[in-house]
Design a binder for these strands. Sequence first.
DNA 1: TCAAAAAGTGAATAAACATTCAATTATTGA
DNA 2: TCAATAATTGAATGTTTATTCACTTTTTGA
Lengths: 208, 208
Amino acid sequence: MTYRRSALMEERLANNRDRILLATRKLVSEGGFRDAQIAAVATTAGVSTGMIYRYFPSKAELFVEVLSAAVEQEIEILTEIANRPSPAPTRLGAAVVSFVRRALAGPNLAYAFIAEPVDPEVDTARIRYRKKFGDVFKAILVDGMEKGEIPQQDADASAACLVGAFTEALVGPMDPRRTTRATKEQLTESIRTFCLRAVCGIWKSDDA
Amino acid sequence: MTYRRSALMEERLANNRDRILLATRKLVSEGGFRDAQIAAVATTAGVSTGMIYRYFPSKAELFVEVLSAAVEQEIEILTEIANRPSPAPTRLGAAVVSFVRRALAGPNLAYAFIAEPVDPEVDTARIRYRKKFGDVFKAILVDGMEKGEIPQQDADASAACLVGAFTEALVGPMDPRRTTRATKEQLTESIRTFCLRAVCGIWKSDDA
DNA sequence: TCAAAAAGTGAATAAACATTCAATTATTGA
DNA sequence: TCAATAATTGAATGTTTATTCACTTTTTGA
């Protein structure tokens, strides 16, 4: 054989893959899956369309990987909050605020995460990830109920409701461009209050 | 002129239109907008594809009309509940339960209402209708706050959260086919509890 | 019954994209 | 430098559907 991948080449390949993922993520963040056609991804990543198929078997799998990476990162952050030693309501509020702040901060995948992707394969993944997302909140609820910090309730239903509540409040009403910092903080606070009261009955204000 | 529409003909035309709308609604209920291709709609309605374009300028406008009719009917029911003389929390709980029960009862547009349609034109309509939907709940909240039945809160945010909460709880977790009547009632109750506590702090149980 | 006008049909057209692949360029080790 | 191999390209292909339109059938009023 007169060809074997050098370390440099290996790196360049990995680089290409990352560039494609990044480009996809960017497009999806800005305009949803709708705007992330293969041609657009290729242009944004600075590669050819054929290139993309060297790294990903199909558009659907590319989308799934983008979604998965985004959700896993998000879940990691929220899990850290969920495992803190503070009281369950405090952790829950902190988790909600953490997610909402990031979502309001700039273009992100929140919308694509909620919305229905065109592709059934991606859709399946999306539902799975939403469920996983809810599980973080469910864990806080279950823990809080055990410790008597949160009243008894249907943890599955409450977790789903929580996820629905703060995602809807984010997607629906706001044009992200015409929103000041203060308005955003106000909305964040309103959502936190809603979510805390929803599961605790009473709103507690301590941050974390 | 040797042709003018007779009353009978007029009726048949209206009938065709309705059949097309009904067929679209059926397909969307069962498989989302994805499954409602013009060809499928035509077959289901028992007309030709060309026919559809005699009654609707485009697929998008057909979809919007289906969505609009469904939402308006839903809003009418909920508005009636919102205008009852009972205390605001009672009305709110009743409205939530009313919507959830219908959604769980069988194939319906709940999913399509929440999910992202493929077409931007339909998407715009969808967001508008979701907002309208939230307004019914907002009205109950505002009224309840005035009467001191509901604690002061950001009515816009709470309304959005409510809509998100009960729609998510409906779409996410359940396979409608593998769910018993009892389970459905249980879920309905869990959602009601969540929503009531979310805006009132305390859960009251009276039906309506 | 007849001709004008409209309703109705569905095969053909068109547009939008994902995917492929023959050809080209780059990399590697000898 | 060279041949072998891999990476890369982007025009061509295939697919999926909305939409159109030339043609057929039905309806209407005289």
